[in-house]
């Protein structure tokens, strides 16, 4: 029954047009960035940067390099918006529309219902990140050759990888990006379980992450960086380091998993005790 219920949640989720806003926005943003990179000074500046560091621009202005350049701003700006939009809808939209009352007139437990919805949300997050990566790489490949990867890495300035190694790291990075998206979605999902409008759940989740980002940037909080989720969201970029800081990445991913589990439990508890009224 769990899989039948999950399938139904996916029907509901992917049957809505607004679910696809994120996918559409990603494709449009990538196209705009790709054209800007190709036809403005952006590519020239990048080539000069590589040449200034003693590298041949034609070896590293590649599909992989451009794909990573395109993915970065979308991860920071667009992905949180679209995953929290869907996460905030998962429960609150059903409450607002009145369909939740229909569901809860049936013998399904509230915990089971939430679990099914959350898993459907996580599947959405995974699909969104996968589509982001595939379209970024696919579109970049149309204009740029398949060569090595040049990437800026926090704490290391930049790194250079051959095409095969670059692709592997790109794929692994996306696994961690799925966890980032899942955590963001879970925060919005938690707010959605309280008695509030879907937009409020989305705004609260975005606000929480924005406050994290701002506080993390204040020098006073340097020593408390581990307390900020946004600090751990950057772990995916460490995958491109040499050597790969496995423990640093593992620590961040464990913390994100724990944060996801915590917000799920808080949301489930709030949902369990609340009254569902028209």
């Amino acid at each position: 029954m769990f899989f039948a219920q999950l399938q139904n949640e996916l029907w509901k989720l992917f049957g809505k047009k607004r679910t696809y806003i994120g996918f559409g926005a990603f494709v449009l943003a990538q196209l705009a960035m790709l054209l800007a990179f190709k036809f403005t000074r952006w590519q020239g500046d990048f080539e000069r940067l590589l040449a200034g560091n003693g590298y041949l621009a034609e070896e590293f202005i590649s599909a992989l390099t451009v794909a990573v350049i395109m993915v970065l701003p979308q991860i920071v700006l667009l992905m949180p918006l679209y995953v929290t939009l869907v996460g905030g809808d998962l429960v609150a939209k059903e409450t607002e529309d009145g369909t939740l009352r229909m569901i809860l007139a049936r013998p399904i437990s509230r915990h089971r219902l939430l679990l099914v919805k959350w898993v459907a949300g996580m599947i959405f997050a995974a699909v969104l990140v996968a589509v982001l990566g595939i379209t970024a790489l696919g579109m970049a490949r149309i204009f740029f050759p398949w060569k090595g990867l040049f990437v800026f890495v926090p704490g290391q300035a930049f790194n250079l990888l051959n095409a095969q190694e670059g692709l592997l790291r790109f794929l692994i990075a996306h696994i961690f990006l799925i966890l980032n998206a899942g955590t963001m979605l879970s925060i919005a999902f938690m707010f959605s379980c309280f008695n509030m409008k879907p937009a409020a759940a989305t705004i609260l989740a975005l606000s929480y992450m924005f406050v994290n980002l701002v506080m993390e940037g204040i020098p006073f909080f340097d020593r408390y960086q581990n307390w900020f989720l946004t600090h751990h969201f950057r772990a995916w970029l460490m995958v491109f380091s040499d050597p790969v800081p496995v423990w640093r990445i593992a620590q961040s991913e464990c913390l994100l998993l724990a944060a996801t589990a915590t917000v799920f439990v808080i949301g489930a508890t709030a949902f369990q005790v609340r009254d569902i009224k028209s």
Binding site: M1, A4, N8, W11, G15, K16, K17, M102
Partner: peptide, 29 residues
């Protein structure tokens, strides 16, 4: 138990059949 509420709400973007399938699975196969 079956229940009907004032102004019944459905997933308007899905067919009536799909709505029935979705709601039925919350009770039993």
């Amino acid at each position: 138990v079956g229940a009907i509420f004032e102004a019944p709400a459905f997933y308007d973007y899905l067919s009536g059949w799909r709505n029935l399938e979705i709601l039925s699975h919350y009770t039993a196969s």
